[in-house]
């Protein structure tokens, strides 16, 4: 079987397995980021273009906690989402909340502008080369899987991302709070009439979506260069993931995130030059055949 695989793909099987696994790891980041976007779009109808900057802020806050306050990775995992989520709450209260009655486009432009400004401030303050952040001592080292060396930290990223995705899905689909949220999306006035504070709920939802982005940023800090443009590079891909999965579909964005990570990983073996483009080709095909996305409701 393995020989057969090798003969048709022209790539040694161990290498292929390794690439599938690496694709899965990248997929974990796509899933985490698209999850936050899907939550925000599904419940607020805002296309949050600040998401990349908020991912970057998560990584920078982790660096600041370590270098300014001496708080390590595990503290950052807890505190960075709270801090960045709080900034999200402020942004929602002071600016985004004024746009709900207007077309989607205004929210998109506003969040895009805020994202550019946040990036600009960080660039002026910290430069563009990036800052060092080390893998926590507990997660250093690697497992020898036979076909490749698997860094323990990457395994942790996949596991943690899966838990986050599952928890978010459970909260929204299976709890009373989630039911309120979904109901408020359908008919805010009616839910408010039942005594639920809808504006506050929406604010906190935005904060939670932003916190998810920051959490992904903390996860990324030890393996990617912590620099102001780190979010920009990812966010466009993540938007494609959300569109392919179906705007607002939480399960869709998670599954698509992992799936596209794997497809991208395989492209890196067979046609590396196209690895940055493949996701957009898929997006074009999906939009032509299923305009609402793979898991979206038309």
């Amino acid at each position: 079987m393995l020989e057969f695989l090798e003969s048709i793909t022209g790539v040694p099987t161990p290498l292929l397995f390794g690439q599938l696994l690496l694709g899965l790891i990248n997929g974990a980041f796509y899933a985490m980021l698209s999850l936050g976007l899907a939550v925000i779009f599904g419940l607020l109808n805002i296309i949050n273009f600040t998401h990349g900057a908020q991912f970057m802020m998560g990584a920078f806050v982790a660096w600041m906690l370590l270098n300014w306050l001496g708080l390590g990775y595990w503290w950052a995992l807890l505190l960075a989402p709270l801090i960045v989520g709080a900034t999200g709450v402020i942004i929602e209260r002071t600016m985004i909340s004024r746009l709900y009655k207007l077309d989607h486009l205004y929210g998109l432009l506003l969040t895009f502008g805020i994202g550019l400004m946040i990036e600009g401030v960080f660039r002026n303050e910290f430069g563009s080369s990036g800052l060092p952040y080390r893998i926590p001592a507990e997660l250093q080292g690697a497992w020898d899987l036979g076909f490749m060396f698997m860094p323990i930290y990457r395994g942790w990223v996949v596991l943690f991302a899966l838990i986050c995705c599952l928890a978010t899905w459970l909260v929204i689909e299976k709890t009373r709070l989630g039911a309120y949220l979904r109901a408020a999306t359908e008919n805010a006035a009616l839910v408010q009439a039942f005594g639920v504070n809808v504006p506050r709920m929406i604010t906190l939802t935005y904060g939670a979506g932003v916190a998810l982005a920051a959490l992904a940023g903390v996860l990324a800090a030890p393996i990617y260069s912590v620099n102001p443009q780190m979010g920009t590079n990812l966010i466009i891909v993540v938007f494609a993931v959300v569109v392919i999965g179906g705007m607002g579909s939480i399960l869709g964005s998670v599954l698509t995130g992992f799936g596209l990570g794997i497809i991208e990983g395989l492209t890196k073996v067979y046609w590396p030059e196209a690895s940055a483009t493949v996701i957009f080709v898929i997006m074009a095909i999906v939009l032509l055949t299923r305009p609402a996305g793979l898991f979206g409701r038309a």
């Binding site: 040694p12 161990p14 290498l15 390794g18 690439q19 690496l22 694709g23 790891i25 990248n26 490749m148 990457r154 990617y224 260069s225 780190m230 590079n233 990812l234 466009i236 990983g265 890196k268 073996v269 590396p272 030059e273 196209a274 690895s275 940055a276 483009t277």
Partner: peptide, 21 residues
């Protein structure tokens, strides 16, 4: 050699594993 898209590549692990292989 492996040619990586510029700009926009963040994860090089796949290319590094190919290089190692």
């Amino acid at each position: 050699q492996v040619r990586t898209p510029f700009p926009g590549t963040t994860d090089f692990s796949s290319f590094l594993v190919q290089a190692q292989a």
